[in-house]
Design a protein around this nucleic acid. Structure first.
Length: 328
DNA sequence: GCTTAACCTGGACGC
DNA sequence: GCGTCCAGGTTAAGC
């Protein structure tokens, strides 16, 4: 990885006029853990074996999305798929508010928030780290895992561009910060994780989750290299059932994998925050109940009955509101 | 079928 | 400075 302080390429642009996007909320809403924003407001991250730089006018969900991919330029489909830009949000907002008027505030706050379509392997292992942990520490652990076992992604363009900010609506020059935090690595292969060192993972703050990561990688290898990716083509219920059958995967993590990487838009991961929201809005009778499988199912059903095929998307708006409210 | 404890770690908080 | 609590869960044992 070569750090450069001169521009590394031209921005490309996707028009978001009819597809609102809230880049900041989407990348910081606890779906993915390896995005970093530089001082110029550019988001840098890795998707598969590609590096991405993304920029949008702050606070404007209808601003065009400016992007660049590395080392191969022009991967528009990768960018649009990853950000779930094909989903028409505005009609969904109308449906959600009709079903639950108290959604209006969350929609206004996070207008353009989208569910990511992440590579399944990264999502699968990143959420192993989420058990009994904080978002800051999950980010640190996942970043260190990629740093230790992932392949470096070159962000080094042969043709540098003379891009300059000509108005406040233009993106800043695309310049990679000279900071190790902005080094990018592909997420490790399953084969690599299967022979990873437990001690190394523990030193990367994976704690008691370290042996589970290695065991799950071995299990995935035994199931076949495409087993996880093939769940994409299965119905939600079947995909979740297959995931929960793995030792170490519970309902919540299975739903996270389904929603954030397998395209199961109706999946509603029920964590402590989502549960509290559901009990305050929809199912107060479950407020004092333990989160048994039956209660988990009742809470999931409450979201899915109200918000239908995109219940997971709707729930993410409420979840982010709860998370941000707690931080504030 | 429900409750409880154990599992790592570090930041927040109270004293 | 130190002790305690808690954080986007899962599992297994005990009742």
């Amino acid at each position: 990885m070569v750090h450069r302080q001169e521009p590394v390429g031209d921005w490309e642009c996707t028009n978001c006029e009819n597809r609102p996007l809230n880049l900041g909320a989407t990348l910081t809403s606890g779906q993915a853990f390896r995005w970093r924003q530089d001082a110029a407001g550019i988001w840098w991250g890795a998707v598969g074996t590609s590096g991405l730089a993304l920029w949008q006018r702050s606070g404007d969900s209808r601003s065009p999305l400016f992007w660049q991919t590395f080392p191969q330029a022009g991967q528009r489909e990768l960018v649009e798929t990853y950000l779930g830009l094909e989903v028409p949000l505005v009609p969904l907002y109308q449906e959600w508010v009709s079903a639950e008027p108290r959604m209006q505030n969350a929609i206004e706050l996070y207008h353009g928030l989208r569910i990511l379509r992440q590579p399944p392997v990264e999502c699968f292992f990143a959420f192993q780290c989420a058990t009994c942990n904080t978002v800051v520490k999950i980010e640190r652990s996942v970043h260190r895992l990629a740093l230790r076992y992932g392949a470096p992604i070159e962000i080094d363009f042969p043709e540098s561009a003379e891009s300059g900010m000509t108005s406040r609506d233009d993106p800043p020059p695309l310049t990679l910060p000279d900071d190790p935090a902005f080094s990018f690595f592909a997420f490790p292969e399953i084969e690599t994780l299967a022979i990873a060192s437990e001690d190394a993972l523990r030193s990367d703050l994976w704690g008691y989750r370290a042996p589970r990561v290695i065991a799950l990688a071995k299990h995935l290898l035994a199931l076949g290299p495409d087993w996880l990716a093939n769940l994409h083509g299965q119905p939600y219920a079947r995909a979740k059932e297959a995931l929960v059958a793995l030792h170490g995967i519970g309902e919540k993590v299975a739903d996270c994998i389904c929603l954030f990487s397998l395209g199961k838009d109706e999946a509603t991961p029920v964590d402590t925050h989502v549960r509290q929201i559901a009990c305050s809005l929809f199912v107060p009778e479950l407020r004092d109940k333990s989160l048994t499988p039956r209660v988990y199912a009742a809470i999931s059903d409450a979201y899915q009955e109200r918000f239908g095929a995109y219940a997971g998307w709707a729930q993410q708006y409420l979840f982010l509101g709860a998370m941000r409210g707690k931080k504030a």
